[in-house]
């Protein structure tokens, strides 16, 4: 599977020498242009896995082969002293875009997430959903093939989240990005992913995998939920 864009082999992680394993022998390949939903209960190490792919943490053992990735956090993590447009422009600047290019590209990306009207506003003037859309535009501004998303819609209300699901799907189809999307919400995973991976907790391992195909999403959601519950019950003892 050397053709995979992200190639993770035998990856383990513990935060300090005596600490328990957070990730244990994780093996994962993600193909170019694929949308993978990584599902797991809280504390299963899925965020750690994403941070490792992004290079925010160092693996304890194992290898990660991945091009540089854009990242979207659970909170939008916009810089409060910059307007929406300037937040996107900063990402363009740090990637080395010229000044004139920055302006037009930032405007285009804000239009892509339907926020042209709010370009001059500062993060505190925007709603949570709008902030996440600015964050999405900012991660697209990085122009990297891979987009890592760490529960980006978890804190939003249901209607906003549904809209952002549509928006993300549209953006994914338009830009052909490879997306690894973390969530603890089964419906969200089935709604978005082409492939759903289930992670176990303590230590984190990829324990099951479902392709999302032509079958009834409601049935698939029920199946995966059953497995997730089984996995969580394992920790009752």
């Amino acid at each position: 599977m050397s053709s995979a864009q992200i190639n993770i082999a035998g990856l383990s992680k513990r935060f300090s020498a005596g600490a328990p394993l957070v990730l244990d022998n994780v093996n994962l390949q993600v193909q170019q242009g694929e949308f993978v939903a990584l599902l797991g209960a809280s504390g299963c190490g899925k965020s750690t896995l994403l941070n490792l792919i992004a290079g925010l943490e160092e693996p304890t053992s194992g290898t990660i082969a991945s091009p540089k990735a854009a990242f979207m956090f659970q909170d939008a993590s916009l810089f409060p002293w910059l307007s929406a447009q300037a937040n996107v422009e900063l990402a363009l600047q740090l990637r080395g875009a010229s000044k004139s290019e920055r302006r037009s590209e930032a405007a285009r990306l804000l239009e892509l997430v339907h926020l042209s009207d709010a370009a001059a506003k500062r993060p505190h003037e925007l709603s949570g959903g709008m902030r996440q859309r600015v964050a999405l535009a900012r991660s697209l501004a990085q122009n990297r093939d891979i987009l890592l998303m760490d529960e980006p819609f978890a804190a939003l209300d249901a209607i906003t989240r549904d809209l952002l699901h549509d928006e993300l799907q549209r953006v994914w189809k338009e830009t052909g990005r490879t997306i690894v999307f973390i969530t603890h919400n089964v419906r969200e995973a089935v709604r978005l992913g082409q492939r759903v991976l289930l992670m176990s907790s303590r230590p984190g391992r990829v324990v099951a995998e479902w392709p999302v195909g032509e079958q009834d999403p409601a049935v698939l959601t029920a199946d995966i939920t059953t497995e997730l519950r089984k996995e969580i019950r394992r920790h009752a003892a």
Binding site: H165, D166, Q169, R187, R191, G213, E214, T221, T225
Partner: peptide, 17 residues
């Protein structure tokens, strides 16, 4: 998982229901 919420859920490859 309430049935009404799964109904409106779009399925990526086949398009929204």
């Amino acid at each position: 998982m309430q049935p009404e919420s799964t109904l409106t859920k779009a399925e990526p490859s086949s398009g929204p229901l």
